[in-house]
């Protein structure tokens, strides 16, 4: 894709854009190959039903990965997203008998608040993000399990908007898919065209330089953890709507899937490089691979894990190569 696209864009993009395109190139190339291989091998792959299904299945993970992207761009990490997703879903289901508005506000609000707690501990108490969010992951998951006595909490049928979020359609397109694309579009514009977005890159590039340039580094880091919590919360209520229940075990291990998607997309764990466009490719790529495994049907889930892990490593290695080539051109 790089050879096809670059000439048309030349002059419009600086060399840094070219580098980031190449970095993303690994994932894009893999996505294209996976799609071509999928449509050749499986008749069922390239059908609208299957593709929309892939999108819907991955839309919630996509929202979580988007929040993770902001955090990772600043050089941080958020391990608590899976647990916050569960908290949000459980609270939304509990509040659903009082109506959708309260359910949504309660669920997303709680996850956002816990994200703020993450951010405060990281910026005020100066504890490493890995530790803070690990502790939050354990505590929030525990709270969700304790409050529900490990039971799934059914959502009230009165909360029609909650159900609509999870199961509704806009024309042929499921609502979660619309939300997914909308969120990525807003995030893309935010990262590229707003000060908040540029500060995210600045802090991830060099926090010291950002501080000396007078940027509000701490407030910014706090905001990204709040945002990550909010998006995990949004994913939580969508999932609750879709399942018709808030499940305390929902989202287990999603933090790692989200990190995998961000990394596969080409956002660097060291921060400062990557973005929403990269992550959307990462989410879709992992989603398509998973879908292909299912269409194959004969690979046991455990071997699927082995293959996914191997594949993840392969993509990252290719990215590293591409990036080095772009640097030494």
């Amino acid at each position: 894709m790089t050879t096809g696209m670059l000439p048309a864009l030349r002059g419009h993009f600086t060399s840094s854009r070219a580098v980031s395109l190449l970095q993303r190139g690994g994932a894009v190339v893999a996505l294209v190959i996976a799609c071509i291989a999928g449509s050749m091998r499986y008749y069922a792959f390239a059908t609208p039903e299957n593709l929309l299904n892939v999108l819907r299945q991955n839309s919630m993970l996509g929202l979580v990965a988007l929040g993770m992207t902001f955090v990772i761009l600043t050089g941080g990490i958020d391990l608590s997203v899976g647990a916050l997703l569960a908290v949000s879903g459980v609270i939304a289901a509990m509040l659903s008998k009082h109506g959708s508005l309260l359910a949504l506000a309660g669920g997303i609000g709680a996850a956002t608040a816990l994200g703020v707690v993450n951010g405060l501990l990281i910026t005020r108490a100066r504890i490493q993000p890995f530790i803070v969010t690990l502790a939050m992951m354990i505590a929030a998951r525990g709270a969700a399990l304790a409050v529900t006595s490990e039971q799934s909490i059914p959502a009230s049928p009165q909360a029609s908007a909650l159900t609509w979020l999870g199961r509704g359609q806009l024309g042929p397109v499921p609502v979660p898919v619309v939300l997914f694309f909308l969120a990525y579009a807003v995030a893309w514009v935010t990262l590229r065209y707003t000060r908040f977005g540029r500060y995210v890159y600045a802090v991830g590039d060099s926090e010291e330089a950002a501080r000396l340039m007078g940027l509000p580094a701490d407030r910014l880091v706090l905001a990204t953890y709040a945002l990550s919590g909010a998006l995990a919360g949004l994913a939580g209520v969508v999932l609750a709507g879709r399942l018709g229940a808030g499940q305390p075990v929902a989202g287990t291990g999603w933090e790692l899937d989200a990190i995998a998607a961000v990394v596969v997309g080409g956002t660097l764990l060291t921060g400062g490089q990557g973005g929403a466009g990269a992550t959307i490719i990462g989410v879709l790529l992992l989603g398509v691979i998973f879908n292909l495994f299912n269409l194959e049907g004969t690979i046991s889930p455990w071997w699927q894990w082995v293959l996914r892990g191997t594949f993840l490593m392969g993509v990252v290695i290719i990215q590293g190569r591409l990036q080095r080539r772009a640097r030494s051109h």
Partner: peptide, 19 residues
């Protein structure tokens, strides 16, 4: 102390970008 992955223009104007 500059942002190495960002452009020259952005490094000069970050915090005061024309909008």
């Amino acid at each position: 102390h500059l942002l190495s992955h960002r452009t020259v223009a952005e490094n000069i104007y970050i915090g005061r970008e024309p909008t």
